[in-house]
């Protein structure tokens, strides 16, 4: 049923599953205290209602846990001779094709948590602000390789505006 987002004759390169681990840890770190606080507060007023709130919050967290995994698994990219393809999204899906000749610059970013988990994000920029081509959850070595390769190909196929 997913033909429109099929890979372009070569398989998608998927991002590191560690990204899912990182995001899940963030979800738990933020979600568990909030859920616990809500359950306790409501529980002080009304015991069984507090229990219900706790159960709903737990179910929500479990659902978020599953969704995060699916979202991370949905990211993928493919390098072709003339362009880079990036796909993402479970509910709202997107596939973007960026020609190397249109790249203005490439960013590699990694926050403190990303670095601890050995992850980095590569983002491509063109003259169009709408171009949304970022690839999170790359191993730093792969991110650097991708950046250099994109830069080299962009140079070779550069076109003006």
């Amino acid at each position: 049923m997913s033909e429109p987002f099929d890979p372009p004759g070569q398989p998608w390169v998927r991002v590191s599953p560690r990204l899912a681990t990182l995001r899940r840890l963030l979800l738990l770190a933020l979600g568990v205290p909030v859920a616990a606080a809500a359950a306790v507060l409501v529980g002080l007023l009304h015991r069984s209602l507090g229990l219900a709130v706790g159960i709903v919050a737990l179910a929500g967290l479990a659902w978020g846990f599953v969704v995060l995994g699916r979202r991370v698994r949905s990211w993928g990219y493919a390098e072709r001779d003339d362009d880079l393809l990036v796909t993402r999204g479970v509910l709202n899906r997107q596939l973007v094709v960026v020609p190397y000749g249109r790249m203005q610059y490439v960013d590699v970013t990694a926050g403190p948590l990303d670095r601890r988990f050995g992850l980095a994000t590569v983002q491509l920029h063109t003259a169009a602000a709408a171009t949304d081509a970022q690839i999170p959850g790359l191993v730093p070595a792969e991110a650097a390789r991708l950046r250099d390769r994109l830069a080299a190909r962009g140079e070779a196929r550069s076109a003006g505006l």
Binding site: P4, V98, A130
Partner: peptide
Amino acid sequence: HERVQSVRLTQGP
């Protein structure tokens, strides 16, 4: 065509 910067395909639920 020579002014196209990138092409995107999107699909909502």
